[in-house]
Each structure stands twice: as structure tokens, then as C-alpha cells.
Design a binder for these strands. Sequence first.
DNA 1: ACTCACCTACCTGTAGATCGGTAGGTGAAG
DNA 2: CTTCACCTACCGATCTACAGGTAGGTGAGT
Lengths: 190, 190
Amino acid sequence: MVRARSEERRAEILRAALEVIAERGYRGATLGSVAERVGLTQQGLLYYFPTKEALLVAVLEERDRWDTSGGRDREGWRVDLLESLVEYNAMRPGIVQTFSALLGESVTDGHPARTFFTERYAQVRANMADVLRLEFGDRLPGGLTPEQAAPLLTAVMDGLQYQWLLDPSAVDMPSAFRDFLRLLRGGGDA
Amino acid sequence: MVRARSEERRAEILRAALEVIAERGYRGATLGSVAERVGLTQQGLLYYFPTKEALLVAVLEERDRWDTSGGRDREGWRVDLLESLVEYNAMRPGIVQTFSALLGESVTDGHPARTFFTERYAQVRANMADVLRLEFGDRLPGGLTPEQAAPLLTAVMDGLQYQWLLDPSAVDMPSAFRDFLRLLRGGGDA
DNA sequence: ACTCACCTACCTGTAGATCGGTAGGTGAAG
DNA sequence: CTTCACCTACCGATCTACAGGTAGGTGAGT
């Protein structure tokens, strides 16, 4: 019972951290504000995560677990699923904001999330390429190879997220993404 | 003479600020480190820019002036120029990093650069759409309208920048961008 | 009795900003 | 041509506010 409660607490903390990072980024986030959100003191929080960086790492790992299980069970993928993913994201500005803020910070020198994102993107690109190849073969209808299309797909998703976060009313993220997929699939209409 | 020296100083400071922001982001940047880089104390710096936020605003305004004059003299634009822009960026990781870091931070709550980026992206999209329409009419070869393509173009540029900054060896930014343009221009090869 | 899940108190560092200078030049008045 | 008020371009000291992290508890549950 104690153990369970403890695990529960950790999960609460991670969720709170996600929120706070969304609001202020990692550098701007304070242990105190995360702690407050779950009804702890800053030092109470440090009992669960010994340092601020450890907390960040835990947040990133959780995300990794989440979308390693949720979206991509090895071969259970299609490009269509990306559409759903984007639609799903469009309903969860909080999470999108967290990771967009972290991605932005991560390009600065010595940021603790940097290697995470570097590896993650390499993996995502490779995965995308696999999926595209499985669905279209070595050449997509639009004329690109899977390896050429993969970074573009990733870029479009991220780039649209920023535009959408800055002004949700100005960009219809899911439909813009669909436009891009149509392009990949070889122009045409509808 | 005194005046001239002062303007020069301000320019030096802005350049230094750009560097420091690239290295640590806005939140991570300190007035002291910017000052040090131009041989001033923090207090000396505050003589030129009364607050940290004022310094940031000045940096953003300068960038705005720069690429309002440099790249886009009203109608002197073609899509090809975007290719050159991306190539140019690929040679200046510093500046790209500054603005990628700022963009990431800007989606957090109450960030001083937020309105800047929001307005800037609205303007960039509008501009892109104009240029595309001028070159292709109301429907691009790939099948999209200029208004559909504009946010995608912007997204690809930004998204590629992140991937490239995280691992320059993993993504050939200019050539990936050309791939995308080929897509927009209507598939086909070469 | 012992561990778990915290808390109080505290330390150290740092950041932005204010205050009060001051050296050096500029400009007008005598 | 000198004097005196004044401005420019800074610097040193200091204030306030957190921030992350440590040390050493304490009470509740087992």
C-alpha cells in the first residue's frame, strides 16, 4: 500500500512536471512550483527525484515509454496512423507544448535533453522510413525515397506544432498535415 | 563621434546577445555573460538596454529589420530564393540556433518573444502564399493552394532546422529542403 | 523498532535591478 | 581661455528574490 502510494506520487509528480515545463520550459521550471502542484514542498519532491535533471530525465523516459508502446508496436504502423497522431496532438496542447519547449531548449549548449532528442529523432526518422517503405516501396508516388521523405515528415509535424501553438486559430494542424500527406502520396486532388 | 561610438557599442552588444542566446537560450542567458563578451560589466550593459527584456526586443527587432530588407524587397522574391536562404542558414548555425531556441521558448506562457513570433509567422505565411501565387497561380503543380502550401513550407524549414541543429551529420538540410520543393512543384524526378 | 514519506531550517550561488558615484568630454558664459 | 554646469558612458556596492541542494529531523504505518 505504501509502495503503491509512492508510485502513484511519482506519477503525479511527473504529470505536474510536464505541466510546469509546458508553461515555463525546463530552465524556467522550478522544483518548488512542481512540488506545490502536487501538495509537496520542494524538498519533499527531492525525495522522489534527487535532482532537477533526474526529474527531467524521468519525464523524457516516460514519454519514450508512452509512445513506444502507444503508437508503434513494431510493425503495427501505417502512415494513416500519423494522421490520428496529429489529431490526437491537436487535442492535447499541453503535451505538445512541453515537448516543443524542450526541443527548442535542447539545441542550446549542454542541455540535458539534447542527447535524448538527438537519438530520438534519428530513431523516428529511421522508423518513418521503414513504414514508408513498407507502404510504398522504394519510391513514393510523389517521387521521393523513404529516406528523403522521413525527415520531411518529421519536420512538418514539428514545424506545424510551433505555428499551431503560437496561434491555434491561424493554423489547422491536422488538415495541414493531411495536405502534406497528400503531397507525399503523389499530388492529385481530393 | 560620441554618438557614433555609442551606436557601435549597441551593435556589438546585440551581436554578443545573439551569441549568448544561441548558447543558452533567453532564460539561460545572463546579462553578465553578454556584458563580459563586449568588455563591459553587467551594469554597463544596462546603461544601453535598461532591462533584459529590452535587450531581447532589440535583438528581435534587428533580426526583423535584417530579413525585411535582405530577403524580401516586396516583390523581388521567388521560390528559388528560399533555397538560397536555406543554404545560407546552413552556413550560419549560430543564428539558426538563436532563433530556434527562442522559438521553442516562445511557446511557453508569457514569454516576451511570443507576440513577436506569432505576428512574424502570420506575416511569413502570408508572404509565402503571395509568392507562391505569383509563381504558380491559384493551384500549385502538386495540387495545393498557396494558402495550403505556405504553412507547410514554413514548417519544413523550421523542422529541418531542429533536426539539423541536433545532428548536422544526420540531415542534409538544403538537400532535404530541395526535396520538399520538388514535391511542391509536382513530383516528377530530378 | 524501523522504514517510509515527508518537513523545517539552512546554505550557497546567481540573477536582475537600483543607487550612487566618477572620469572624461562638451558647451556656454564671463 | 578659463570656469562651471552638464551630459555620456560607464563601474562598484548593494538589494532582493529565488533556485537548487543538504542536513537533520518527525510522525505515521508496519
